[in-house]
């Protein structure tokens, strides 16, 4: 068990709980799937239970639920205007899903689904596909005006357009890499410091004295990671809103 604690990568391993195979694909129910389900259950249960009172003067939990609602609504309205509010359920779901997944991951021995690039990439792709599909559906060919800059010499237009397209395509990657890298790096760092504490305190009195510093670091990092867990969910939401804004108002 001590070895598990010291190995900072172990926490990201995916273990099968219920092996399922569909054709060539291994779609087993894994610990990752379990925590996805737990994220959904935890977030939904919290939001429903917190608002069960439906009181005029909210209690603490209802206030948290209401605050997350108005927070996402304000962010979306600020970034994408009134027209963006039709995406509110999607943006809110993304925010709550990422936030609750990040926070659940902070609990010791829990799996952090957002520390896997494929999960964050899928969420980012969901956003970008929404932007592209809605943009083309709403504005047709006009939507591609997003990639053609104005005020650039004609000779450079193809080059700049190419760069703009790559820049646009890099959005889901940067969006997912950022969330993934933050969660991964945070959890590895935490694990490493926690490992120091365990290893040093196992080495007697002097070791315990020496473990104080890494312990303090681990505590500080935990606090920081909670902040990061929220902040990354927020950044993900803000960027989602801004990309949606491009789909709603792609210019003339």
């Amino acid at each position: 068990m001590a070895a598990d604690k010291v190995d900072p990568i172990h926490q990201f391993h995916i273990t099968k709980i219920l092996p399922i195979n569909v054709g060539h694909y291994d779609v087993s129910f894994t610990n990752s799937s379990l925590f996805m389900a737990m994220t959904v259950i935890a977030a939904t249960a919290f939001l429903i239970l917190a608002t069960s009172g439906r009181s005029m003067v909210p209690n603490r939990w209802q206030l948290v639920a209401e605050m997350s609602y108005s927070f996402v609504a304000n962010t979306l309205r600020d970034a994408a205007g009134k027209a963006g509010m039709k995406f509110f359920p999607m943006v809110f779901s993304l925010f709550m899903f990422v936030l609750v997944a990040n926070l659940l991951g902070m609990i010791p021995y829990f799996f952090t689904i957002t520390s896997h690039i494929i999960v964050t990439f899928c969420l980012a792709m969901l956003v970008i596909s929404t932007v592209v599909i809605y943009g083309i559906w709403k504005h047709g060919f006009h939507f591609f005006g997003l990639f053609v800059p104005s005020g650039v010499p004609a000779a450079l237009v193809p080059l700049v357009t190419m760069i703009e397209v790559i820049s646009f395509l890099s959005r889901p990657i940067s969006l997912s890499v950022r969330l993934f890298a933050n969660m991964l790096a945070g959890h590895i760092t935490l694990k490493v410091f926690a490992g120091f504490v365990v290893t040093l305190s196992a080495a007697g009195v002097a070791g315990m004295a020496g473990a104080v510093l890494p312990l303090a670091m681990a505590v500080a990092l935990t606090a920081l990671e909670f902040l990061v867990a929220f902040l990354q969910a927020y950044v993900f939401t803000v960027l989602t809103c801004m990309y949606l804004n491009d789909a709603i108002h792609p210019g003339h």
Binding site: Y25, V27, S32, M36, A37, V40
Partner: peptide, 25 residues
């Protein structure tokens, strides 16, 4: 592990989206 994660993410997030848009929000 990607196939499994994508599938289960689609299922859970889809469910979450429906719950959010139909009940919670």
């Amino acid at each position: 592990t990607f196939a499994s994660q994508i599938l289960w993410l689609a299922i859970t997030f889809g469910l979450f989206y429906v719950l959010m848009s139909k009940v919670v929000l």
